[in-house]
Design a protein around this nucleic acid. Sequence first.
DNA 1: GGGTCACGATTGTTGAACAATCCAACAAGG
DNA 2: CCTTGTTGGATTGTTCAACAATCGTGACCC
Lengths: 234, 234
Amino acid sequence: MVTGVFDDLAAERGRLQRTSAAHQVAELLREHITAGALSPGTQLPEEALGTALGVSRNTLRESFRLLADQRLVVHEMNRGVFVRVLSADDVADIYVLRRALETAGIRAASVAPPERLAVLRVAVERGEAARVAADWVAVGTADLDFHLGIAALTGSERISEAMGRLLAELRLAFGAMPSAAELHEPFLRRNRTLAELLATGRIAEAEAELASYLDDACRGIVAAIRGDLEVTEC
Amino acid sequence: MVTGVFDDLAAERGRLQRTSAAHQVAELLREHITAGALSPGTQLPEEALGTALGVSRNTLRESFRLLADQRLVVHEMNRGVFVRVLSADDVADIYVLRRALETAGIRAASVAPPERLAVLRVAVERGEAARVAADWVAVGTADLDFHLGIAALTGSERISEAMGRLLAELRLAFGAMPSAAELHEPFLRRNRTLAELLATGRIAEAEAELASYLDDACRGIVAAIRGDLEVTEC
DNA sequence: GGGTCACGATTGTTGAACAATCCAACAAGG
DNA sequence: CCTTGTTGGATTGTTCAACAATCGTGACCC
């Protein structure tokens, strides 16, 4: 295989003109949805949104298709699109997939290049710094970045993308929770211990810690959603 | 949680009027692509395809968005959409995700309801019957159904859907291979042993067998794609 | 109260139009 | 010969206006 002089440039080809009106609108809506500005269940009318955003109905409909496949909105035939509202079952289902992806990452930790493990350490420290500054939004994003990094240990683009979508979907649940800001705080310490277990190669212990971590996290969210205190699933 | 009398009906709600022109066109194209009727790399022009299928350009573009998110086609800005052509790296990447999903299924086998295990046995027997009849297409679909059933042991809709998309993507590679028909034949016996290991609860052995299985399958496809005999990845 | 029906509103789909971009071919220059 | 402008046709990106299909609602009637 001939390796050219422009391999590093070719790798960044994806950053070229990935912008179309539909993509930009989808990105805008995605940010508003995951930030909680558009609460779950809200309908997104084509006419009103189109004029508000300055795009035509057809273009807006293309954006809706993109968002629908990321499960951020649901498309009901002849009724319109609505911001997704997550049920408790959805959250439990999401955590089954999340466990599969993160477990795969941990099992690949021993053969992962060191820079991928460094990403984890950075995310942990960023989260702890944000807690000191009482910036709970930053604590949340650092937490999500940490777990995205765990899945990325596999080195698989598809796993990273699936994990990214999964976390974006979870943000829907966060936005709907009371005191969502401090939600991630109790898990900061566990992230650190998880990172240290991985850095020192104690894979089996890390896997057990992850399982316990995900159980607790899932129970917390499901309990908050249905106001119940006893949650058996997850 | 209140469990109603119509839970089984509610589960099938999705089969109601999921038909829009865009969905139907996407489904049609999906079948043609996975069946190999549209070879990878082929461009799908909007004007020509639209008139050929009797739908307008806007509707066709909506179908393209759906197919693009399933990775069956790629959408290049201002150039059009093309049937996806899988690289060897893509196949390797797919198998990393596939291993994660199927491993999760095997680990859930001990708590999975028996009807989910029965699905596996049915798929194995269907494959063996198809081999006797020399119906290689049926052998292939039975093989894919078997592994879809393994992922479905998790009971997670999202995992099942992710696995379904993954297998549809893999079909792209199958269609591009010489003698793709008999490709699945050598794995029939291993499917049976895997099913028996799961049925008798020997989870650890099943997990090891699956790892070996996926290694061999991935190596075979990657070797076929690049015409190389020595494949180190997977 | 329950059922029917017409109405308004929204979505589904089409067709045409124009701007923007790409691509291949060709011309010019070193 | 190779590289660099330039041109023109073809395809895509986007908008707009229109109509059909469907849904939700409220009035109306029994």
